[in-house]
């Protein structure tokens, strides 16, 4: 049964900030090894939804399941649930890695230090092993020569590739990308998307909030189109990009020249 469960399953997720509804009944399944791209206008709740997956935002109601196990709450024997303790939540979060729009690297640590930090100090893996792993991950994004550099000396594209290495070093079940190329100069977008394409090909499970429609069309297995806090279309990217079901999606795609 666990094998059949989607890597991520969101069920009727609602989120309100101070009574303002930002997500309403969002349901989405992401199959193991697949890539889901979350697209839609700014302010439609895409990022908030992504942040619900690793509980950086707590859904007001609804459920997130990671490979069948609920995130953020623990089923109690009498039925119903209780919130996870801080310790349980921290542990659950190690199963999901996140790549942020503004990189969010730790500036006081070297590139290598950034990549091994959480594996060593959160997962408790032996340092040597983590370093070896980190060098391999940095090599695959073409940054092995930068291992001892500090983040502020890197370009935006390099920073984001380091951030992806940092995310992979946790060996996560799911990788979340929150607009990973939105803060980059246009010339640097390609190098980051290329790394993400490779990951998708290798069967990494990914959820990507993005405005890169070409990437979404080519790489996604599933598209979720958000508008005003709801998912109003989901499904196959080909269908979505060639024959969107809703007017709203059609108008949205027109702005991208699609």
């Amino acid at each position: 049964m666990a094998d059949a469960a989607p890597a991520v399953s969101a069920r009727l997720v609602c989120k309100q900030f101070d009574g303002i509804e930002v997500l309403r009944d969002v349901s989405l399944d992401v199959a193991k090894g697949s890539t889901a791209c979350i697209v839609g206008p700014s302010g439609s709740g895409k990022s908030t939804f992504l942040r619900c997956v690793n509980w950086l935002e707590q859904p007001t109601t609804g459920q997130i399941l990671l490979n069948g196990a609920p995130m953020g709450v623990v089923p109690s024997p009498k039925g119903g649930t209780r919130p996870m303790t801080a310790k349980e939540l921290a542990l659950a979060r190690t199963r999901v890695s996140m790549v942020f729009q503004h990189f969010a690297l730790w500036p006081h640590l070297t590139v290598l230090g950034n990549v091994i930090e959480a594996p060593v100090h959160v997962l408790g893996r032996p340092r040597d092993e983590a370093v070896e792993d980190a060098r391999r991950l940095l090599a695959r994004v073409g940054l092995e020569a930068k291992a001892d550099a500090f983040p502020h000396t890197l370009s935006g594209g390099q920073k984001q590739r380091v951030a992806i290495s940092r995310a992979l070093a946790m060996k996560p079940e799911v990788l979340l990308f929150d607009e990973p190329t939105s803060a980059l100069d246009p010339e640097m977008v390609g190098e980051v998307l290329e790394v993400m394409r490779d990951l998708a090909k290798e069967g990494m499970t990914m959820m990507v909030v993005t405005h890169e429609m070409a990437f979404a069309r080519d790489v996604a297995d599933t598209i979720a189109f958000f508008d005003a806090g709801r998912v109003i279309e989901t499904g196959d990217p080909k269908a979505f990009f060639t024959a969107p079901q809703t007017d709203r999606a059609r108008r949205f795609l027109t702005r991208y020249g699609i």
Partner: peptide
């Protein structure tokens, strides 16, 4: 900058480690 703190929480840091390391 606060982004790094949030990243640390997302990576499973608990408060004591977050303070000490980040």
């Amino acid at each position: 900058p606060k982004e790094g703190f949030e990243a640390a929480r997302a990576y499973g840091f608990r408060p004591a480690t977050l303070y000490r390391r980040i």
